[in-house]
Structure formats: structure tokens, C-alpha cells
Amino acid sequence: MDTFSLVLTIIVALGFTYTNGFHDSANAIATSVSTRALTPRAALAMAAVMNLLGAFAGSGVAKTVSKGIIETPQGDHGMWILFSALVGAITWNLVTWYFGLPSSSSHALFGGMVGAALAGGIGVIWSGVVEKVVIPMFISPIVGLVGGYLVMTAILWLFRNSNPHRTQRGFRIAQTVSAAAMALGHGLQDAAKTMGIVVLALTIADVQDGTEIPLWVKFACAITLSLGTYAGGWRIMRTLGRRIIELQPPQGFAAESTAASIMYAASYGFSAPISTTHVITSAIMGVGATKRLKAVRWGVAKNIVAGWFITMPAAALVAAAMYGVVHLAFE
């Protein structure tokens, strides 16, 4: 086994984690920044710390990613497949970040894995893709939309007779908690996905057997995700925080609480790798719909949802093309 391909793949995996961090930092903090509950830098620092803690909070998602999406490839051939998958995911992250589109880093990764596996002649576990990726991709936004609507409706009813200024101030404070919970869930979900990829690389290289995550892998993925988060993703933050609806503190709290609850349930209850982008975006839409349906800018929402559907095939195509390049160059 060529050590070079293993080291390069791990470096690229950490590069994916970094892009995941700055691409998805908006998920955790866009609502709290847009409602002025937190300053941008304070929000990013908080998110980075909570991402770090979330990375150590559970490993069920990592084991799902490392085993269950594609057949475990072997040798240098398998390592280059994994390398190509990561390049496909990173490329799509950068494209969607440039256009300010809150797409899913998770589904870019899964799309890259499928595309590279097909190009490299490795079996795709389609039942695992459907069960662990496709079904949660459809269910989690629906739950986020409905959950956001119900939570916001409950808040409106509970505080219907309260002083508006005092309520706004109270929810602005509460948002620091809900944003932290969101960032913790992001670390729990997204750091674990890269941990699973690194474990898969170590398995391919015959460095380890099984799905246990070495401590150094946890630290490396957690710190890299946190650094990426602190770098910030301002383009996507504007889309989530202002372009879907104009958020107020109670709405921001409702959206963040809903999304965080869904991520915890998916991580601990089902070990399902879901998209933090999908759940927070759909929760914001649900919250906005409590004002009136026209309060949500459905044109912007439509473009975001369209991006969700093209993420996996787009990343798969880039990964397949990348595999063709490395196959000619190294195999």
C-alpha cells in the first residue's frame, strides 16, 4: 500500500472538513446574527467551540458513513476512489459557497462517494444509499418545515399577551442558547462524517480493522471543522439570515430549536447522517409561514431546494471525472 495515497487522502478529507465548516457555519449562526442576538465574530467563535464539543458527542453517524454507502475498496485503487470522492465534494462546496447557495456538504460527500465508486468499478450499496441518505434527505426537511411552523405557532400563542419589546429582548438572549445547540448538533453530525471517511481510508490501507475512531482522528476532524467554522461563510449567511424571510428573535429561536432537536434525534436515535443545511433552511421556511405564506420568499426557497436535488449528481460527476484523471496519472 502506497503511504503517499493514504496521507494525501487524509489531508484532502481534512480539507473537505474545513470547507464544510465555512460552508455550513451559516447553519448555526445566520439566524442569531440577522436578529442581532449575537455579533458575527462572537457567533462564529461560539459556533467554533460548540462544533468542537459536538465532534466528541457521538460516533454513530461516523460508523454509518464508513460502512454502508459503498463497498470497502482495497489497496491504492480504493484509496484513489476515496480521494476522488472527496475532491468532488470539495468542488461542489466551493461552487455553492461562491453563489451563496446553502446546499448540503453531506450530500456532496455522499454524491462524491457514489460517483467515484461507479467510475472505479466498486459496488455501491444502493439499499444503504436509499435508507441512510435518500430517505432522510426527503423526511428531514418536511419535519423541519412542520416542526418550525408548530414551534413558532406555540410561541405566538404562549406570548400573545406579553409586552412585545420585552419578548423580543428575552428571545434575543434565548437565541444564544438555541444557536449554541444548533452548532453542537452541526459538530455532532458533520465532524462525524469526515471521521467516517478517515476511518474508511485507514481500513483501505489496512492500518486498522473495524469502525472504531482513533482519538487523533476525532481531534483532527474536530479542530479542522472548528477552524473552518470560524473562517465564516458570509455569502450563505446572508441567504439564510435575510433572503428567505426577515427574521425576528422569536422566529430565530424557533427555527434553531427545531433544527437542533431534529439533528439530535437523527444522531442518537437513528445514527442517520442528515443535512444540517436542509433542516435549518426548512425550519426557517416553516417559521416564516406562520406570518403568512407570502412572508416567505418562495422564489429564493425554490432555488435552494433545486440546489438540494442537484447536489448529489453534480458532486458524483465531478468525482467520476476526478477518478478518470487519477486513474491515468497514478494507476
Score class of each variant (00 low, 15 high):
residue 202 L to V: 05
residue 220 A to H: 01
residue 179 A to N: 10
residue 217 V to P: 01
residue 195 M to W: 11
residue 222 A to D: 01
residue 200 L to F: 06
residue 195 M to P: 08
residue 203 T to W: 08
residue 200 L to V: 00
residue 187 G to R: 04
residue 187 G to V: 02
residue 184 L to K: 07
residue 178 S to V: 02
residue 198 V to T: 06
residue 217 V to S: 01
residue 198 V to D: 06
residue 193 K to W: 00
residue 196 G to R: 07
residue 200 L to Q: 08
residue 223 I to P: 00
residue 185 G to Q: 05
residue 204 I to D: 10
residue 183 A to G: 05
residue 185 G to K: 02
residue 187 G to F: 03
residue 223 I to C: 01
residue 199 V to L: 07
residue 219 F to Y: 12
residue 209 D to C: 00
residue 192 A to K: 03
residue 199 V to Y: 04
residue 189 Q to T: 07
residue 183 A to R: 06
residue 184 L to C: 11
residue 180 A to V: 00
residue 212 E to N: 15
residue 204 I to E: 09
residue 214 P to A: 04
residue 177 V to F: 15
residue 198 V to M: 13
residue 199 V to N: 04
residue 202 L to C: 08
residue 176 T to R: 14
residue 180 A to P: 06
residue 217 V to E: 02
residue 179 A to Y: 09
residue 182 M to Q: 15
residue 177 V to I: 15
residue 179 A to E: 12
residue 196 G to Q: 07
residue 187 G to S: 11
residue 185 G to P: 10
residue 178 S to A: 11
residue 212 E to K: 13
residue 209 D to G: 12
residue 189 Q to E: 13
residue 175 Q to W: 00
residue 201 A to E: 10
residue 218 K to S: 15
residue 222 A to F: 00
residue 199 V to F: 10
residue 202 L to M: 14
residue 184 L to N: 09
residue 180 A to N: 04
residue 222 A to H: 00
residue 220 A to Q: 02
residue 215 L to I: 07
residue 190 D to S: 07
residue 222 A to Q: 02
residue 224 T to P: 06
residue 190 D to R: 03
residue 194 T to I: 08
residue 190 D to N: 13
residue 185 G to T: 07
residue 219 F to S: 04
residue 186 H to D: 13
residue 191 A to H: 12
residue 178 S to G: 03
residue 206 D to V: 11
residue 215 L to A: 10
residue 183 A to E: 03
residue 198 V to S: 09
residue 187 G to H: 05
residue 220 A to R: 07
residue 212 E to H: 15
residue 176 T to V: 14
residue 207 V to Q: 15
residue 224 T to L: 05
residue 225 L to R: 10
residue 187 G to M: 11
residue 176 T to A: 13
residue 180 A to W: 04
residue 206 D to Y: 11
residue 179 A to L: 11
residue 213 I to W: 05
residue 177 V to S: 12
residue 213 I to G: 06
residue 219 F to E: 04
residue 210 G to L: 06
residue 206 D to N: 15
residue 209 D to F: 14
residue 184 L to E: 03
residue 191 A to P: 11
residue 217 V to H: 05
residue 195 M to C: 14
residue 220 A to E: 01
residue 197 I to K: 11
residue 191 A to L: 09
residue 218 K to Y: 08
residue 175 Q to D: 00
residue 178 S to I: 06
residue 218 K to F: 07
residue 210 G to N: 12
residue 196 G to I: 05
residue 223 I to M: 08
residue 192 A to I: 01
residue 209 D to H: 14
residue 192 A to N: 15
residue 222 A to E: 03
residue 218 K to H: 14
residue 216 W to A: 08
residue 199 V to Q: 03
residue 207 V to F: 15
residue 223 I to R: 01
residue 214 P to Y: 08
residue 191 A to M: 12
residue 214 P to C: 02
residue 178 S to Y: 00
residue 187 G to E: 10
residue 210 G to S: 06
residue 184 L to A: 12
residue 207 V to E: 14
residue 188 L to E: 09
residue 193 K to Y: 00
residue 205 A to V: 09
residue 198 V to W: 05
residue 198 V to P: 01
residue 206 D to G: 12
residue 200 L to M: 14
residue 216 W to M: 09
residue 192 A to D: 11
residue 183 A to C: 08
residue 175 Q to L: 09
residue 208 Q to E: 10
residue 204 I to W: 09
residue 190 D to H: 09
residue 179 A to G: 11
residue 181 A to Y: 06
residue 193 K to M: 03
residue 206 D to A: 14
residue 198 V to N: 08
residue 221 C to K: 04
residue 196 G to C: 12
residue 177 V to A: 14
residue 179 A to V: 04
residue 179 A to D: 05
residue 194 T to A: 04
residue 184 L to S: 09
